[in-house]
């Protein structure tokens, strides 16, 4: 197995890099700095760092005000609180005013496994991507998370970045870049398109040889930009393969799978299977155990792919 790194480490590095790049970057926390890794920014740039305590709604409002003053605020907390607790502030203050606020949704999906259902952000992509003007990024590893932070910092407008807690395999090299609205085609095949985000990208990569052993090849799209989505890449792949499988550690409705279906049903209606959390809450367990309970693994993807292709 290759090198493993937690994506939050990439977030932390990204904040520092963005901070060196622009003196306008400021960082806000809500008492989770040491957990997320954003405290490093505060040590290097103390005058550009604000910890508001356990008050997510205020954090987003403060970030909005800092953006109005001309700064580039990154406000971070666990995704479940960032997207959920402060949704009204994000909708009506950040998005309606199209403010330059960046939101770090840490510990996304089931990556915070043992903490249990209350802390597992499984709805954040859905409730963020529905907001007008909001961009949603879903990096696959630590290096790509760092690149997402830099892309967000250079972008004018609100961005939500969803990343995780636990070490995941490094797919991308240090110094890789991300463009908002562009996906990454990691593998090319003929029979099936696999669309994945976050930790499921590395699971999907592991699924590819399992498929090959059964005589199947797949396009693998890392949909790092959930919104705006790389429509052309997805549509041309779906036209070629005729079958799409989406994998995400998120509810199987409303998130990446929902976004893919919304696009394809009008531009290229092909069968789509959505692998995710099937409308239930998670539970305590290691992230791997919890994902396995939802079949969100390389072998789960491989089984679903075979089922899909056998049907057709």
């Amino acid at each position: 197995m290759g090198r493993m790194r937690p994506t939050r480490e990439g977030y932390s590095e990204g904040l520092l890099a963005a901070g060196w790049e622009s003196p306008l970057v400021v960082v806000l926390d809500a008492d989770l700095a040491s957990s997320i890794g954003s405290e490093g920014f505060g040590q290097v740039f103390p005058d550009r760092y604000f910890n508001v305590g356990i008050s997510e709604q205020d954090m987003i409002g403060e970030a909005a005000g800092l953006a109005l003053a001309g700064l580039i605020p990154f406000a971070s907390t666990y995704g479940v609180f960032a997207a959920g607790r402060a949704w009204d502030q994000i909708r009506t203050t950040v998005c309606h005013n199209n403010l330059n606020v960046k939101i770090g949704g840490a510990h996304g999906g089931v990556s915070v496994g043992p903490d249990g259902a209350t802390h597992q952000a499984l709805e954040d992509l859905a409730i963020m991507r529905v907001l007008p003007g909001m961009s949603v990024l879903f990096p696959a590893d630590a290096s790509q998370t760092k690149a997402c932070v830099l892309a967000a910092s250079r972008h004018q407008g609100p961005v939500y970045i969803r990343f995780g807690r636990n070490p995941v395999p490094e797919i991308y090299p240090e110094g890789c870049s991300v463009e908002i609205g562009k996906a990454d085609l990691l593998s090319e095949g003929r029979h099936l398109t696999i669309v994945a985000g976050g930790v499921m990208v590395s699971e999907a990569l592991d699924a590819l040889p399992l498929l090959v052993s059964r005589g199947m090849t797949a396009d693998l799209i890392n949909m790092v930009s959930v919104k705006p989505m790389d429509e052309d890449m997805l549509v041309s792949s779906a036209k070629k393969t005729g079958h799409v499988l989406v994998a995400e550690d998120h509810q199987d409705s409303g998130g990446l799978g929902g976004a893919v279906c919304e696009l394809l049903c009008s531009r290229c209606p092909v069968p789509v299977e959505r692998m995710g959390v099937p409308g239930v809450f998670g539970q305590s367990g290691s992230p791997e155990e919890v994902r396995e309970s939802f079949d969100l693994t390389a072998s789960g993807i491989s089984r679903m792919a075979r089922k899909m292709l056998e049907r057709s």
């Binding site: 400021v26 987003i60 409002g61 970030a63 109005l68 003053a69 502030q89 009506t92 203050t93």
Partner: peptide, 22 residues
């Protein structure tokens, strides 16, 4: 700034003031 959902303004104003001070 747009307003309508109550309880937002003071955070925005405080953040704005912090930004100005910085």
């Amino acid at each position: 700034v747009s307003a309508g959902s109550l309880g937002h303004g003071l955070s925005i104003a405080c953040g704005f003031a912090l930004g100005i001070r910085l």
